[in-house]
């Protein structure tokens, strides 16, 4: 029973990692850039929703505030691309990496100024208590996280495989010049993907804040989600979810069965092993082009 309990709580945590990792992968899949500020986006989305919902601030009903927060984050993501990242078009990936790390610092600072550094909880209807199913304690928020994550991954996967815009995004990342020749407005497509990943970050943030308290440093969770994205294989949406679940499940088991001190290094050790032996992740997308 204990194993099941650990597994379930690990899965719920893993889904949050998976959701943040989805944001990484979305941007990587469509622009070949890596957004190191994705964790801070998640934190910002959570705080925007918290600012709209909590009685202490705006006091809107949650079911209005949550879509609003998602929309705000989507617009913010688009504007960010429009005003900042578009100017880096054609420069190296490393420049984008450094820029987004700096952006993360700035977001963390701004969030700290607006909402203070005290941990706060979102007054969410999802945090209504725990179920007890045959000895396994399960929070409502945990169930919501798992359901939303699976649905979101499915829809995004279908979006990339089936829709015209999704295919345009893939084309824009695979070969920018060829995409231009095919009449794809590459820069606008990139702006859209930043907006989309902002929205996904907001969903992740709202769910994360429903599970517990949140403070401006919660964005550091992004590093763990990053490990998840790499373990799953950058560029694969189901891979991101799987990576998130693996990291999420490993954590509680490691802290239960490993001696103290070794548990928190488990995800990163796994990450290093994956990078050394399967550098492009478990769900590798790297193919050798056939001529």
């Amino acid at each position: 029973m204990e194993v099941v309990q650990l597994l379930v709580s690990g899965l719920a945590n893993g889904c949050v990692y998976g959701l943040i990792a989805l944001g990484f992968v979305l941007i990587y899949k469509a622009t070949e850039q890596v957004n190191f500020a994705q964790g801070d986006f998640m934190m910002l989305g959570a705080f925007v929703c918290l600012g709209l919902t909590n009685a202490h601030y705006m006091g809107l009903p949650f079911w209005i505030a949550a879509p609003l927060a998602i929309a705000i984050m989507a617009v913010l993501g688009y504007l960010l691309d429009f005003f900042v990242l578009r100017h880096l078009f054609g420069q190296s990936q490393t420049a984008v990496v450094i820029l987004t790390i700096a952006l993360g610092f700035v977001i963390r600072f701004v969030a700290g100024v607006i909402w203070s550094h005290e941990p706060q909880t979102l007054e969410s209807p999802l945090a209504i208590g725990d179920f007890n199913i045959g000895g396994v304690v399960l929070g409502m928020a945990d169930i919501a996280v798992i359901v939303v994550t699976v649905l979101l991954t499915y829809f995004l996967y279908q979006f990339f495989q089936r829709t015209k815009l999704g295919l345009a995004m893939q084309a824009a990342s695979q070969n920018q010049m060829a995409a231009y020749f095919m009449g794809i407005p590459v820069k606008r497509v990139q702006g859209m993907i930043w907006g989309l990943s902002g929205a996904v970050a907001a969903v992740a943030g709202i769910l994360f804040a429903s599970k517990g308290a949140i403070d401006p440093n919660a964005g550091l969770l992004g590093i763990k989600a990053f490990a998840a994205a790499v373990i799953g294989g950058f560029g694969s949406l189901p891979g991101a979810l799987m990576g998130g679940l693996i990291v999420g499940v490993i954590e509680p088991f490691a802290s239960r069965y490993f001696p103290a001190g070794y548990s928190q290094i488990a995800p990163y050790t796994l990450l290093l092993f994956v990078l050394v032996f399967r550098p492009h992740g478990l769900f590798s997308q790297v193919r050798i082009k056939k001529v």
């Binding site: 990936q93 590093i223 990163y268 290093l272 990078l275 050394v276």
Partner: peptide
């Protein structure tokens, strides 16, 4: 030696992991 097989972003990620591990290894 393993890290040079990686390039660009993957190298950055591997080195981040290294930096986080260093903290824990010092404690261990």
């Amino acid at each position: 030696i393993p890290a040079i097989r990686l390039h660009g972003i993957y190298l950055a990620i591997a080195t981040i992991a290294l930096s986080i591990l260093a903290d824990d290894i010092i404690v261990l």
